[in-house]
Amino acid sequence: MEDKQLEAFEIDCLLGAILLRYGYDFRNYAQASLKRRIHNRLTLSNLQHVSEMIPRILYDEHFFSEFLCDMSITVTEMFRNPEVFKFIREKVVDKLRTYSRINIWNVGCATGEEAYSIAIILAEEGLLNKTHIYATDYDNQALAVAKTGIYPANVMQQYTENYLKAGGRQSFSDYYQARYESAKMKKNLREKITFANHNLMQDGSFAEMHLILCRNVLIYFNQTLQNSVLSLLRDSMVHHGYLVLGDKETLDFSSVANDFESVDKQRRIYRKKRLR
């Protein structure tokens, strides 16, 4: 058996072990990034073969939590791709205004930067009081950070620039309290966001959404998992609800392509069609 095949076999065994032991199913992750992350962990742990990780995963919960962290690494920021948020503010918000209650789902929220960004937009548009934002991830460590709403002060400069490019109308510093090296998001934003554990690989729908942000989540999944997640999102939305993907993602190759219409191609904003 070639080394390459052997390693593919080892990765299958590892993912099987993780599923059986901890219930996390990474078998439908896109292989290239997954493999890279596994190799990084292998090097950091001074191990040679992927299969050597299996006993560590099975018997050492701390090792597994590190692995989980590796798998959920996402580099995010507030108002990432500010033009997307500007578009939401200028074109989507007026449609949301017509609802008596607004539900927003931020899928794969990681440490929460995007959830706070959308909360700020709605606050400035006078809609935050009738809005609830559900921000979910499978990584409890990231969620813990998100719930505190505390970020390093040195990134606030970049976030301020993004905020202004996204059409921000006030001073970004109105939204946080700076203290020493950190900045804590204000309570009126935090209390409108429910950060909760939700695993796209196994959990279902939990509310009817008017806007779903699912940016740079699907890039890590293979076609099968993408399609099942997209079906879940579609079924979690009102008719004419909005779906926002990452700026290099598209519904074009997916099984739900016909269930949505493109609102803005470049910014990857879609709207659910009235079905049947």
Partner: peptide
Amino acid sequence: CAHELILPAYVYIAPAAYHLLIEEDKTLSL
């Protein structure tokens, strides 16, 4: 673009701020 099938006679440029990888099924991955 994420999940795009790699075709001959095309040049694909990695977008800024994303890593670009190749999948076993000859698709692009970000």
